[in-house]
Design a binder for these strands. Structure first.
Ligand SMILES: [Zn+2]
Ligand SMILES: [Zn+2]
Ligand SMILES: [Zn+2]
Ligand SMILES: [Zn+2]
Lengths: 328, 328
DNA sequence: ATTAGTTCATGGCGTTCA
DNA sequence: TGAACGCCATGAACTAAT
C-alpha cells in the first residue's frame, strides 16, 4: 500500500553513516556498512572503552576506520546507533484489550462521531484510533488543565464552536455522538472500575468537549480559520484550574487517565517507528491541553448565549441536558 | 467451514520435513520451518551447489542442519520442495466458471449420482469434483478410445455392470442419475456451444457409460472384485475405434473435450501439490480410457442380454430409451 | 488465513595485523 | 598468535499479496 511506514526516514541513500562505505541497510537504528555494524555490536557486547591516539576528532572513512576505534565508536553513537534502546515496546494485556475494543468499535463505525476532525495525525494506522485515544484522555481528566494558547486560535475556535451549538444540523449529529459515547465508553475495562455516578459525571462533563471537537470539523490549521469563515469573538484566558462538577473519586479518575495515557504512549511506540514517535505523543498531549483550556472558555461563552432567548431556543435536548447545571 | 481443502495432505503435523523443527506451514510445497524455508529460497536464488564434507548421507536435524548444506538441500528436494516449478497454474475465467458451477451443483447434491464410486482419487478436495470432471471428459469424447486393460479387470467390471442393469433398485437410481445429468450438463458454458441435437446425442450415447460407472459402486480395487461377489463373464477386447452414433459436429465436440481437459489439468495443478499432480492427471486419463474401451464391450454384452426375454423385462425406461437404437 | 519475500540481529569463520 | 575485522549464512519477525 501507499502508507510505507517512515518512508521519509528510510529513504536515506545506502551509504554508511559512520565511514561512508556502501551500507547494507539499517543496523542498530542507523544506515551502516557491515564493518561498522559488526564493530558496534562487538563494542557494545564487551562494553569497550577506547582512547583516541590522536585528537579525538578523526574523520572516519572506509580506509581509516580501523585506525581509531574511539572516534569510530563516537561517530556510531553520534549518528544514533543504539543497542536495545527503546526496548521493543509492548502493550500489556489490558492495554491490548483496550486497543482491541477500540478497533472493534472502529470497524462498527461507532467512532465515527468521536474523532478529531481538525487534528490530523500522520501515520495513524486505522485512521482515527489515535484521535480517539486522545479523546479518551480528554474525558478522563478529573481536572481541567491549562496551557498557553494563542489568543487568535482560541477566539476562532470559540467562534465556530458557538455557531455549531446553535445550529440545528449540528444538534442532530450530537444525538448520534451521544449514542456512540454511551456505547463505546462503558465497553472499556478501565471505565468499569468507576462508580456509576462517576461514569455519568464524566460523560456529562465531557460532552461539552466533544461538542467543541465537532465544531472544529472544517477547521484548517494552515490559515487558522474555518472554511465557512466567521465573526470572531474575543475572550480572556483565565488560568484557574477547576475540578469537574459532581465528580467524587478524583484519584481513581486520575489513575484511569494514567492508564489510558500509557495505552496511547505504548501504542504509539509500537505502531509508529522512531524517531518522532515520542514527539508525536508530546504533540498530542499539547493538543489535549489546548482543548482543555478551551473547554473553560467555551463554558463561559455558552453561559453568555444562554442569557439570550433567541439563541437558547435552538439548543438540542442533549445540549440542555449537559449544560443543565450551568444554565440553572 | 468443515470442508477444509486438501484435508488429507494438509493435515500433516506441523513438523519440518527437512530437519524436524517446528514447522510454520507449507513453504515451496512442503511443510517446513522458517529456517529451511529461507535456506531453500536462498539456495535456489543463487543456484547454489554444495558438497557434503562427509558421506552425503547426513541425517538433518534442528541442531545440525547448518553443518551440511549439501544434504540439507538434498533433503529439501527429496521431500518435494520446488521453486517456480510448474509456474503458478491459474484457471482461466471460463475454467473458473466451470469449476464454480460444478461446486454449486456439488453443494446442491446434484453430482451425487454422477461420481465414480470405485475410483478413489487421493486429495480430491471437494470430494468427487475430480471424478466428475473426468466423467465430463468421458462424455465429451466424440470418439471411443481404446487402451489395453487387463482381461480380468474388464471381465469383472462387465459382470457387475450387467447385474446392475437388470436390478430394479439400480433402475430406480438411474432415474435420479438422468435428472442430475440433464440438470448439470446444460449449465456448463462449453456445453451450450453445441447444437441441441448434439447435446442430446452426447447425453444419450454417454448414459451407458454412467450406467457402467454406477454398476461399479461397490468395487474394491484391492482385490479387483465387488463386495457382493459375482459370476464372471468373459469378453474379447476389440480395438475398433468407432464414432458415436448420431453425432454431427465432431470437431466441435472435440474442442469441447479439449477445454474440459484443460480445466481438469489446470485444476489439478492448482489444487494438488506436486509431485504427483501431473501423474494424477495421467492416471485419470488412463482410467478414462479403460472405461471407454469397456463401453464397447458393454454394448455387446447388453445386446446379448436383450436377446433373452427374461432379462429384457427388468430393464428400466431409461435403459430402454438409451439402448433403443441398438435394440431395434 | 496462508505463504513468498524482506529486513536485520546474530554468530561463524577466514583474514588481517600488531 | 590472538584480537579485531568484515563477509556471509542464518532464522525470527516483519510486510505484502492473494
Ligand atoms: Zn561503515
Ligand atoms: Zn580518533
Ligand atoms: Zn527445518
Ligand atoms: Zn552431508
Amino acid at each position: 500500500t501507499a502508507s510505507r511506514s517512515n518512508e521519509f526516514d528510510r529513504n536515506v541513500p545506502r551509504i554508511c553513516g559512520v565511514c561512508g562505505d556502501k551500507a547494507t541497510g539499517f543496523h542498530f537504528n542507523a544506515m551502516t556498512c557491515e564493518g561498522c555494524k559488526g564493530f558496534f555490536r562487538r563494542s557494545m557486547k564487551r562494553k569497550a572503552m577506547f582512547t583516541c591516539p590522536f585528537n579525538s576528532d578523526c574523520k572516519i572513512t572506509k580506509d581509516n576506520r580501523r585506525h581509531c576505534q574511539a572516534c569510530r565508536l563516537k561517530r556510531c553513537v553520534d549518528i544514533g546507533m543504539m543497542k536495545e534502546c527503546d526496548m521493543k515496546p509492548k502493550l500489556s494485556e489490558e492495554q491490548q484489550r483496550v486497543i482491541d475494543i477500540l478497533l472493534e468499535h472502529f470497524i462498527l463505525g461507532e467512532l465515527q462521531y468521536l474523532q478529531f476532525k481538525f487534528i490530523q495525525f500522520p501515520n495513524d494506522p486505522p485512521k482515527g484510533i489515535l484521535d480517539f485515544i486522545l479523546l479518551l484522555l480528554c474525558f478522563c481528566s478529573p481536572k481541567r488543565l491549562h496551557l498557553e494558547v494563542s489568543q487568535k486560535t482560541l477566539s476562532v475556535w470559540l467562534a465556530f464552536g458557538c455557531r455549531s451549538i446553535g445550529d440545528p444540523t449540528g444538534g442532530l449529529e450530537l444525538g448520534l455522538l451521544e449514542v456512540s459515547l454511551i456505547t463505546v465508553f462503558p465497553s472499556l475495562p478501565m471505565f468499569r472500575d468507576l462508580t456509576a455516578e462517576d461514569q455519568i459525571a464524566l460523560l456529562k462533563s465531557s460532552a461539552i468537549e466533544i461538542i467543541m471537537l465537532r465544531s472544529n470539523e472544517s477547521f484548517s490549521l494552515e490559515d487558522m480559520a474555518w472554511s465557512c469563515g466567521g465573526n470572531e469573538f474575543k475572550y480572556q484566558i483565565d488560568d484557574v484550574t477547576q475540578d469537574r462538577p459532581g465528580l467524587q473519586d478524583t484519584s481513581l479518575v486520575e489513575s484511569l487517565q494514567d492508564r489510558l495515557s500509557e495505552v496511547l504512549q505504548t501504542y504509539i511506540l509500537c505502531k509508529h517507528p522512531p524517531p518522532g514517535n515520542r514527539l508525536l505523543y508530546a504533540k498530542m498531549i499539547q493538543k489535549l491541553a489546548d482543548l482543555r483550556s478551551l473547554n473553560e472558555e467555551h463554558s463561559k461563552q455558552y453561559r453568555c448565549l444562554s442569557f439570550k432567548p433567541e439563541h437558547s431556543m435552538q439548543l438540542t435536548p442533549l445540549v440542555l441536558e449537559v449544560f443543565g447545571n450551568e444554565i440553572s
